[in-house]
Design a protein around this nucleic acid. Structure first.
Lengths: 142, 142
DNA sequence: TCAACAGTTTAGAATTATTATAATGTATAT
DNA sequence: ATATACATTATAATAATTCTAAACTGTTGA
């Protein structure tokens, strides 16, 4: 698929140089049907599988954060030990499966709009995010 | 205040030995009007100020996690870089001030009850938590 | 009361995730 | 084509957390 041209343009639009590594990352992240969630570790694995030459860990970190800053990726805080990222950058909520450590998107229709009545003086709301933790029904429940 | 007896009993009830260090931690954490939020770092500082002898960092980690497992503390995920804990273990939501990195409790009345329409087969909901990120109104907004 | 044991604490080493550094490489505008 | 500014790389550094093994201390039962 010659989608790379799109990525080159996309990168250029937001002021990122379309380097080999960034284009490869775009392919891995965005050349797919659905958005998905990953940790840096996941991504490194995916990249090293897809690429002939290896990619530096530092580059993956830098590029992911560059993408995040530009709004290509969203970071999700669930677990203080790992950073999860989401290629779905729109405002949405998540389920987190505590058994498998898997993140699942909530559709907009899954949760009612959240109405916040409290106001912190001098502060504006940047985001409102719901995290629903789920686990297997029968076994241990925490 | 001779509240220590309560702590000794409380610890015993959940099967934790009432050692000097754990009792001290109970005092620092629960001998106060209001519940509060802290990071391990905060707690180490508070403890070293209050105690004559120093307490090992490893002990603080172990004991905090022991408390968490027993339901004395709740961990809150906000930031992948730091673990925040809350002495308020009831289900409630939070504001996070991105300027000061301060956590603020939501009263129950501040947010409507959240209704989740999606069901993950075979999984039960363990918790539903809302995090509202706020920041200064005028300056940078991310 | 006291010995023995199991659970705890401790300091420091190890681990893990992440970030900084400095040299080398490369995309871009001229 | 070339200079320059930005990227990438390997490695070192840092930060938070966990592990380890030895010393210590509540607890239990004699």
């Amino acid at each position: 698929m010659p989608k790379n041209c799109n990525f080159i343009e996309k990168l250029r639009e937001v002021g990122l140089r379309p380097t080999k590594q960034r284009i490869k990352m775009c392919e891995v992240l965005y050349n797919r049907e659905k958005t998905f969630h990953f940790t840096i570790n996941d991504l490194v694995k995916m990249l090293s599988e897809e690429m002939s030459q290896k990619i530096s860990l530092a580059t993956v970190y830098n590029t992911v954060h560059a993408f995040e800053k530009k709004g290509y990726l969203k970071e999700i805080s669930i677990d203080s030990h790992k950073s999860y990222f989401d290629t779905n950058t729109s405002a949405h909520h998540h389920f987190f499966d505590e058994d498998t450590h898997e993140l699942i998107d909530c559709d907009e229709s899954d949760i009612d709009k959240i109405n916040i009545r409290k106001n912190i003086t001098g502060k504006k709301i940047n985001s409102v995010e719901v995290l629903v933790r789920v686990a297997s029904d029968n076994q241990n429940q925490k």
